[in-house]
Design a protein around this nucleic acid. Sequence first.
DNA 1: TCAAAAGTGTTGAGTTTACACCCATGC
DNA 2: GCATGGGTGTAAACTCAACACTTTTGA
Lengths: 230, 230
Amino acid sequence: MEIKQNIKIAIDAIVFGYQQNQLFVLLIKQKYGDLKNQWALPGGFVQDGEPLKKAVVRELKEETGVKVTTMEQLYTFGDDLKRDPRFRVISVAYFGTVNPKELKLNAGTDAKEAKWFPLNTLPKLAFDHKKIIQKAFDRLKAKLNYQPIGFELLDSKFPFSDLENLYTTILQKPIDRRNFRKKILSFDFIAETDEYRKIGSGRPGKLYEFKSRKYNELLKQGISFEIKFA
Amino acid sequence: MEIKQNIKIAIDAIVFGYQQNQLFVLLIKQKYGDLKNQWALPGGFVQDGEPLKKAVVRELKEETGVKVTTMEQLYTFGDDLKRDPRFRVISVAYFGTVNPKELKLNAGTDAKEAKWFPLNTLPKLAFDHKKIIQKAFDRLKAKLNYQPIGFELLDSKFPFSDLENLYTTILQKPIDRRNFRKKILSFDFIAETDEYRKIGSGRPGKLYEFKSRKYNELLKQGISFEIKFA
DNA sequence: TCAAAAGTGTTGAGTTTACACCCATGC
DNA sequence: GCATGGGTGTAAACTCAACACTTTTGA
């Protein structure tokens, strides 16, 4: 049985980073073709013997130098036949988060043309990448309500207020600080350290760290992490 | 820029139906190749000028005669290089539900080789289709908790107990009948009719109908339909 | 001593859970 | 009259939402 098909398959990666009350997305500058010099999501064509998720990790490393641990499949864009003007491309989009260290792009590899952009001041984007980022952000927002992600986005030791601010930034609405703290602490997967944040004005905040072992145990047991507040 | 790629792209469709406290999945018997006569999900290769979602609708109609309205993208299977033993195939899986009328397959088209199987007594399946069905079922179950789907799976007029039974069947646990009724009625998108179910033993139940207009309005307003109970 | 951010409890409202008996029908 | 499934209310436990003042630090 011979199948003729003239469709290319690609992956795109949406990587979010967080710093100082701003969400960032990692973009690269296109090097070739009509869209040369336009900004776009990291990504590219899948190789013949390559699983999709390997392709995502590879492209990210090649194009930006950023190493990610887990990328989650977001959506497959394959209804718009002209999303790539050259020929038909179906793209499987993955998204993930990285910790703040990665926000300093190591200049190695091809990374000169990679840059972090604040989510609210994105440049003009190639293809349908604006739409894809929107969808990824929607998913991130939705996830935040039912499982406490976001630890990946923070330093390994962080003051409680960083977590608060991360939530207000992503959800784009204020939260009740007292209720939020009660709720998060009740899950019992972050632990106080005996350190304090040194810099900045105001009273220094105690630093907390994420207890990933506890968190994964709870996940396995299927505990549900709903987080509700104004 | 020339890209060499030897990967085929296909879609698979998981269609659920419901009848008498049982969930059914629509399968077809393979006609060609090594896997001839094995059961598999309806699906096939995407045509060059064809959006993914059109491909799903087309394949379903061709292979089973079943007409679906909306199919939701489930997941793209592309990590296992040998999921199809012949060559590399990446498959975008879609799932959806149909109303009980469709459970009687119209003998037209190629439908002779299509059949509804109860979810708990599936035959041996080709490829990784067992895994795909499992994932679709997990998603169906998850959806049921946060939005009252399932009306599609029932007759247009149904006794309340049908809805109850649908929930216990999918969630695989008993529910509190009184609390369930209170909750569902409080959403106010099903309406009493003045008819009663005629057949069966016991006291005849009032028939209800789904108020899709109301439901869609609420969805637009972003009302959240959480349904919790034992 | 002032500005800035951190830390902390209580109360009322609303929601969820648990629970058992009577009703209408066909046989 | 009995078997079968349909229909109904209430109280206790829990969770959520609203709300404001004190503490610690650096400048």
